[in-house]
Computed example of a mutant assay.
Amino acid sequence: MDPVDHLLHLDRTLDELDPPRWPPPPADATRLVRTVHELRRVPLGAMGAADLRMLVTQRVALPYVLPLAVRLLIEEPLLDAYFYEGDLLLATVNAPPSAWTPLPELAARLRAVITRLPETEVAALPRGAAEELARFSAETGPLG
C-alpha cells in the first residue's frame, strides 16, 4: 500500500470527516460558495483535480484534501486541473505552512516531486511560480 493511502478516506465525504457538517449555502451565495458546499458532500474518491484545486485554494479541510492532491501530483506534477498546466501544484504549495505540520512525510514527497521538475518546465509556469516552489521547499525543511 502506498504510504499516502493511509491518509485517504476515499469512500467518505468532507462533511463526515471534517465536522461539523456544513449547512446548505445561503440562497444568494456565489457559484464558488455553492460549489464548495456541494464538494463537502462528495466522496473523496469521486473528486477530480479541479475539485481538489478549488478546495485547496479555499483552504477547506486541508488535512484530507492535501493528501489527495499530492497523490495526483506524484503521478503528474504539472497536471492542468482547471486553469493552466501546474495549477494544482501551485495551489498545493500555497497552502498555509501550518497545514503541512501534521503531514511531514507528504510535504517531503511533494518536495521530492518539485526537485525533479525540469527547469524548462518550471520556467514555462506563470510568473512567480519558480519562487513559490522554492519557498515551499525552503519552508518545509530539507529533503529527508
Rank of each mutant, 00 (worst) to 15 (best):
75 E>T: 06
101 T>L: 10
70 V>Q: 13
96 P>R: 07
71 R>W: 08
95 A>E: 01
74 I>G: 12
99 A>M: 00
81 A>P: 07
86 G>M: 06
101 T>K: 08
97 P>M: 06
91 A>D: 02
85 E>N: 10
72 L>Q: 15
93 V>C: 02
90 L>Y: 00
102 P>D: 04
77 P>Q: 11
74 I>E: 15
84 Y>E: 08
75 E>W: 04
78 L>S: 01
80 D>R: 13
98 S>Y: 04
84 Y>I: 06
92 T>Y: 08
65 V>H: 07
74 I>K: 14
66 L>A: 13
100 W>H: 05
83 F>Q: 12
87 D>Q: 07
85 E>A: 15
101 T>H: 06
68 L>A: 12
72 L>E: 14
76 E>D: 15
91 A>R: 04
79 L>H: 12
92 T>R: 01
82 Y>A: 15
99 A>W: 00
89 L>M: 01
66 L>Q: 14
69 A>L: 10
94 N>D: 15
86 G>H: 04
91 A>T: 05
71 R>Y: 07
100 W>P: 03
81 A>F: 14
86 G>L: 05
79 L>D: 15
81 A>Q: 10
99 A>R: 00
80 D>W: 08
86 G>T: 09
88 L>M: 06
85 E>L: 07
71 R>E: 05
72 L>C: 12
70 V>F: 14
102 P>I: 02
70 V>E: 12
69 A>Y: 09
91 A>K: 03
100 W>I: 03
84 Y>P: 03
97 P>N: 08
66 L>K: 11
91 A>F: 02
83 F>A: 14
73 L>I: 12
81 A>L: 11
103 L>E: 02
69 A>T: 08
74 I>Q: 15
93 V>F: 01
65 V>Y: 04
84 Y>H: 15
88 L>C: 08
87 D>W: 12
85 E>I: 05
69 A>I: 07
95 A>G: 01
84 Y>C: 06
99 A>P: 00
101 T>M: 07
79 L>R: 11
77 P>G: 10
95 A>C: 03
94 N>M: 11
89 L>Y: 01
87 D>L: 06
82 Y>R: 13
69 A>E: 13
73 L>T: 14
87 D>I: 08
95 A>N: 01
97 P>L: 09
102 P>S: 03
81 A>E: 10
